[in-house]
């Protein structure tokens, strides 16, 4: 059962990723990307990282995608199509990507991963909260604070950049 679901998700991810990077209608690309994100969140659910999956949904699907769509609305029209890409460019890029993928996958196939441990991951809310706010070993208080600072900085930065000049 779970095996099937994994394959479904994997196929969804791959197909929609390809569509997202090849579609010539820019908003469709964004929507395909949304499906990729949803499938990734599904994978997280499948691996019982519920919190992470919900974060993925909120931040990516609820936040970043909306940002994308907004920016697309501001910068193009509904029946705009992206220019077709020169065949030469496609061929070279494809070659580069396939070469990279082949190298990596062959490396992965030859590598013997250590035996997976069959311990249930305790990814409950309480554990996450405790880790995020502790500063001992396995504590993430510092990165947590740094991230919050970064978020604030980017918030202010985005406002300052996108603000219309007064001059």
């Amino acid at each position: 059962m779970e095996t099937t679901i994994f394959y479904i998700f994997a196929i969804v991810i791959l197909i929609f990723s390809v569509l997202a990077v090849t579609s010539r209608r820019i908003l469709r690309a964004a929507v395909y990307f949304l499906f990729v994100l949803l499938a990734v969140a599904g994978l997280f659910f499948l691996l019982s990282f519920n919190f992470l999956a919900a974060v993925q949904l909120t931040v990516y699907a609820g936040g970043i995608i909306v940002l994308f769509i907004f920016s697309i609305m501001l910068t193009s029209q509904v029946n705009d199509k992206l220019e077709p890409i020169a065949a030469k460019k496609i061929i070279f890029s494809l070659l580069a990507a396939i070469a990279g993928a082949v190298v990596c996958i062959s490396a992965i196939m030859t590598y013997r991963f250590s035996e997976p441990k069959n311990i249930e991951v305790d990814a409950g809310m309480k554990t996450i909260g405790k880790y995020l706010l502790s500063y001992g070993e396995n504590g993430y208080a510092l990165p947590f604070e740094v991230i919050s600072l970064l978020l604030l900085a980017s918030l202010i930065g985005a406002i300052m950049i996108a603000k219309r000049d007064n001059t």
Binding site: F92, S93, A96, A99, G100, V103, A107
Partner: peptide, 16 residues
């Protein structure tokens, strides 16, 4: 990005 990617691939192939 092309240059970087091909560089990486070449290095990896060389090493492996």
């Amino acid at each position: 990005a092309y240059v970087m990617l091909s560089g990486i691939i070449i290095i990896v192939i060389t090493v492996i």
